[in-house]
């Protein structure tokens, strides 16, 4: 559940609005990245209480991320990890989805050493004992505000009757160019010509990613570590690098190239298949 309204707890609470702590602040910000498989919520928070921070460090209290969509989901968050990854099948985001960070006690906690409290509680603090599993504080909540898809200009097409093959995939400066010997190969007379060209898109991605490995791998390795590598200078490689970063791809090799294509694109082969099925069924 998300704490939406302030109430008076029978002990001091750290929130953005209570006065129980001097100079209290507990703010949350969320960044969300995704690929075709999963969501990654990247959590950043600002917590101003040395007492609570120490409880977290000493494992006497626990950060819990609450994601409230249709139901509530709770995720324990360590102070080291700053993200939570959830497969898309487990969660659906809507514009009612809210996220909040809670601090919960893992053991019984004495407030005797809490020097962050206001003067009222200072008087009583030596006697304040909060039981295990109590809420010690909560952050502001953050509401999912929708998403928009930004199409990528990664492919170009051209008809070239002088081609020595039926089609040719060229890796250009910033785009992958598919040359067709004949416009019929593009299915120009079909209203689903886009989808009918998906296999060429797939081939183009394969070729471009192979070149990416070739251009960016260390000597002798057939693998690129996308987390550690330097940002590529080549225009097309930079585009691919950005997509893979965005779609949470961590490494690229000749072996996993198809999986990477699956992660960075949205059902290229499935859409092709259903388009063809639609033609004969």
């Amino acid at each position: 559940m998300i704490y939406k309204k302030d109430a008076n707890f029978p002990y001091p609470l750290l929130t953005n609005t209570s006065n129980s702590y001097n100079d209290c602040n507990f703010s949350l910000d969320i960044d969300l990245r995704e690929n075709s498989e999963s969501y990654r919520f990247e959590v950043s928070y600002d917590l101003k209480s040395s007492f609570i921070s120490r409880l977290l460090e000493e494992n006497q209290a626990q950060l819990i991320l609450v994601i409230q969509s249709k139901d509530n989901k709770f995720f324990e968050l360590s102070t080291v990890d700053t993200f939570i990854e959830i497969t898309k099948s487990r969660i659906s985001l809507t514009e009612r989805t809210q996220i909040q960070l809670l601090i919960q006690s893992k053991v019984e906690i004495s407030f005797v050493d809490n020097n962050d409290l206001n003067s009222f509680y200072q008087v009583y603090k030596s006697e304040i004992i909060v039981p295990k599993n109590s809420i010690l504080g909560f952050s502001n909540s953050v509401i999912f505000d929708g998403s928009n898809a930004k199409p990528l200009e990664l492919f170009e097409k051209k008809v070239n009757p002088n081609l020595k093959s039926a089609i040719k995939i060229e890796l250009g400066v910033e785009t992958i160019i598919i040359h067709y010997k004949n416009e019929e190969f593009q299915f120009v007379d079909s209203h689903i010509s886009n989808k009918l060209n998906n296999p060429y898109i797939y081939m183009g991605l394969q070729k471009a990613l192979l070149q990416f490995i070739y251009n960016n791998c260390e000597d002798g390795e057939e693998e690129v570590d996308l987390v550690r590598m330097d940002v590529p200078s080549d225009g097309l490689d930079l585009k691919l690098y950005n997509i893979m970063q965005h779609k949470l791809v961590e490494d690229l090799s000749v072996e996993n190239i198809d999986e990477v294509i699956y992660l960075i694109s949205d059902k290229i082969i499935e859409k092709y298949t259903s388009a063809i099925r639609g033609l004969y069924s």
């Binding site: 999912f144 929708g146 998403s147 930004k150 120009v188 989808k195 965005h246 694109s265 859409k271």
Partner: peptide
């Protein structure tokens, strides 16, 4: 259909290749 499928130029891959930008807002009301 032919007019909407030019033979040369940028290929429309908007249904398969795109970046998703997710937005969040702080719940100020509460």
């Amino acid at each position: 259909i032919k007019k909407n499928n030019p033979t040369d130029g940028v290929m429309n891959t908007s249904d398969t290749l795109y970046l998703i930008e997710n937005q969040f807002k702080q719940d100020l009301v509460h």
